[in-house]
Amino acid sequence: MRELARRRLLGALALGASACLLAGPAAMAQSSEQQILVDRARIVVEEFQSDGNFRQLPVYVQNAYAVMVIPNLLKAGFFIGAEYGKGVLLARDLRSGAWSDPAFFDVYGGSLGLQIGGKSSDVILTIMNQGAVDKLLSSQFKLGTDASVAAGPAGVGVGAGTTIQLGEDVYVFERGQGLYGGLTIEGTVFKPHIAWNQSYYGQPVAPQQILGGNVSNAGSAPLREALGRF
């Protein structure tokens, strides 16, 4: 009886291991750090879409060459300011309007001055021309140095009739909690996260290849669909 029970237990364990192997990369991707960030980015997009303070954001997204979504960008400091987060960059097909799969980026920066407080923000950046996209895809990109930047219009008083300004390379739209004084959006640095891009797509891949459609991951479909609703 004991031998029979032992064999049944071993058989059940083997069956469970086989099921995990058969589930393969698709099941693993659902619980990966990269997929969690992609899912959070989709939630951020949907929250911006339902927020009346960002009524003009669709116009910027519809005219953008690419969009970066940064969930939970952390800013904190006491005299020396700092920020850190991770974001995903997606490019828009100018003919069809369809969005590419996401490329992963580290976001960080720092500044000196009288700065006290802390803040956590969800951020959407609209990149308005191909030149700015090309610079962002380089090894390291800094707002205000490699591209001009401005805060996107926001507020309950900003409606569809307000004049749309699209003269800057990058516009920043931010939804945040907390108070932080003195930190400027200029000087923020964006750097491709090579390891995360490779992990998510299962092979070494550059951001240019991701945005060009050379690789894909089905897990990004909800995010791409959400952006398509702008």
Rank of each mutant, 00 (worst) to 15 (best):
V149I: 14
G157V: 00
G85R: 07
G81L: 10
L166G: 09
F141K: 06
V88F: 06
T184V: 04
E168P: 03
I124K: 01
A147L: 05
G117H: 04
F104K: 07
A76E: 04
A82I: 11
V170K: 02
Q177A: 10
G167N: 15
G181S: 12
E174V: 07
E174R: 05
V133P: 00
D169I: 06
A132Q: 08
P102T: 01
L125P: 04
T145P: 01
Y180P: 00
G87L: 11
T126W: 09
D146S: 07
D134T: 09
V107F: 07
G110Y: 06
K119E: 08
G157H: 00
I124T: 08
V88K: 03
K135A: 15
Q177G: 12
G157D: 03
L137M: 15
F78T: 04
G131A: 15
T184C: 05
Y171L: 05
G81A: 12
Y84L: 13
V170I: 15
I124V: 12
E186C: 09
V123F: 01
D106G: 07
L183Q: 01
D169T: 02
Q115N: 10
P153E: 01
G110W: 07
A82P: 01
A82S: 14
A91N: 00
P153C: 05
G155M: 14
R95F: 10
S96Y: 12
F173K: 00
S138G: 12
L166W: 09
L166D: 13
Y84G: 13
A103N: 01
V170P: 02
P153W: 09
F79M: 10
A154T: 09
I116R: 01
Y84F: 14
G182H: 05
S111G: 15
V107Y: 11
G187A: 06
